[in-house]
C-alpha cells in the first residue's frame, strides 16, 4: 500500500538523471534548448524539489542557474529598483534600499516559509510558481513590477499584470526561458505602501489572505492620485482589484472614501470556501478590513493622515 501510494503521489528518489551547472546565461539557455522540453530551470529549489517529489512536475534534466553572475544583485537605476533573478527572500529584506523604498516587498519576502527557505528561495521563483497568494508576488504586483525573460531567441519584458495565467501557470516556460530581472519604481516621497497578511501561525504557514497596497497622493490637496490594490488568494492568480483602484483615482483621501473602497473591494472578490484557509464569508470580511487598513497606512506613509 505504502509503496503504491509512493509510486503515484510522492517519491523519495527524484527522477531526474542529469544535473547541469552552467557558468553563464548563454550556456544555460543553450542547455535548455538542447534539452528539448525535458530540461527545466532550478534556482533555490524550494518549489521545484517538492514538486518533483509530488510528481506535479516532470523533468529529466535540471539546469541549475544559481552560479550565473548575470543574475545577482539589487541595484538602483534612476528611480527604478532592479532585482537580479537570483535575489532570495532573505536578501531582499536585508537591503536598505528595499526596506526604505519598497517596504511592502521587504515585508512580503520576510513572511515566506521559514528562515532556511528564505535563504534558498528566490523572488523570481515565487513569481514563476504562480501561486495565487504568493507572499512576494502580491507586493510586486502592487508595485507594477515588470520582469525580463530571456531565451535563445532574445529578451522580452512582461508587466506582472500580464504574467500570471492560472494556478501554477505563467507566461514563462521554464523548459526554455529564464527570468533574469525584476524591475519596479522605488516609492517616492508622495507614495506609500503596505503589506498585510493573515495566517494561522507566523512561520511555515501559507496565508489565508494577503493584501498589498501602493498609493500616490497629493498630501496638500488630500487627494489620492493613484492606488494599486493586490490581493490573494481571491482568484486563481494574484489579483489586482482594478475596479476599486479606478474608483479611487482622483478621490479625496478621507475615511469615508476608504471605507467605501473597502466595501466595494470585498463585494467584488469572492474567495473560495476552504477548510485550510477559511470560509468565503470570513475572508470577504477580512478583505474589507485589509483594504481599509492597507489604504490608510499607505496614505499615511505618503504624507496623508486621514481625519
Amino acid at each position: 500500500m505504502a509503496h503504491a501510494f509512493e509510486k503515484l503521489h510522492w517519491s523519495r528518489e527524484l527522477e531526474f538523471g542529469q544535473y547541469l551547472t552552467p557558468g553563464s546565461l548563454d550556456d544555460a539557455l543553450q542547455m535548455l534548448a538542447d534539452g528539448k522540453g525535458q530540461a527545466r530551470v532550478i534556482a533555490g529549489g524550494t518549489d521545484v524539489i517538492p514538486e518533483l517529489r509530488r510528481r506535479h512536475l516532470k523533468a529529466s534534466i535540471l539546469v541549475d542557474i544559481t552560479r550565473l553572475p548575470e543574475l545577482r544583485g539589487i541595484t538602483q537605476e534612476g528611480e527604478d529598483i532592479v532585482l537580479g533573478g537570483l535575489v532570495t527572500h532573505a536578501q531582499a529584506p536585508a537591503s536598505a534600499l528595499i526596506r526604505e523604498r519598497a517596504g511592502l516587498l521587504a515585508q512580503g519576502c520576510a513572511a515566506v516559509g521559514s528562515p532556511q527557505i528564505r535563504n534558498l528561495g528566490t523572488l523570481a521563483g515565487n513569481l514563476i510558481s504562480g501561486q495565487p497568494a504568493a507572499d512576494a508576488s502580491i507586493p510586486l504586483l502592487a508595485l507594477d513590477a515588470r520582469v525580463t525573460i530571456a531565451s535563445l531567441e532574445g529578451e522580452r519584458e512582461v508587466p506582472l499584470k500580464e504574467f500570471f495565467l492560472d494556478v501554477g501557470k505563467t507566461v514563462l516556460d521554464s523548459t526554455r526561458e529564464v527570468l533574469t530581472r525584476i524591475r519596479f519604481r522605488a516609492l517616492g516621497p508622495d507614495q506609500g505602501g503596505c503589506y498585510l497578511r493573515l495566517s494561522k501561525r507566523k512561520a511555515l504557514c501559507l496565508p489565508m489572505l494577503v493584501c498589498a497596497v501602493q498609493v500616490t497622493a497629493d498630501p496638500q490637496a488630500k487627494v489620492i492620485k493613484e492606488a494599486a490594490i493586490a490581493l490573494g488568494p481571491v482568484a486563481p492568480v494574484p489579483f489586482r482589484e482594478v475596479r476599486t483602484e479606478e474608483s479611487l483615482r482622483g478621490a479625496a483621501a478621507s475615511r469615508q472614501v476608504i471605507a467605501q473602497a473597502a466595501e466595494n473591494a470585498s463585494a467584488w472578490c469572492s474567495p473560495r470556501d476552504s477548510l485550510l484557509r477559511g470560509s468565503c464569508d470570513y475572508r470577504q470580511e477580512m478583505v474589507k478590513v485589509f483594504v481599509r487598513r492597507g489604504l490608510t497606512k499607505a496614505l499615511e506613509q505618503a504624507g496623508c493622515t486621514l481625519d
Partner: peptide, 13 residues
Amino acid sequence: GEPVNSCLLPAMK
C-alpha cells in the same frame, strides 16, 4: 554559514 534545508538541496549545489 547560512541555515538551509538540506532535503531541498541537490547535493551538487
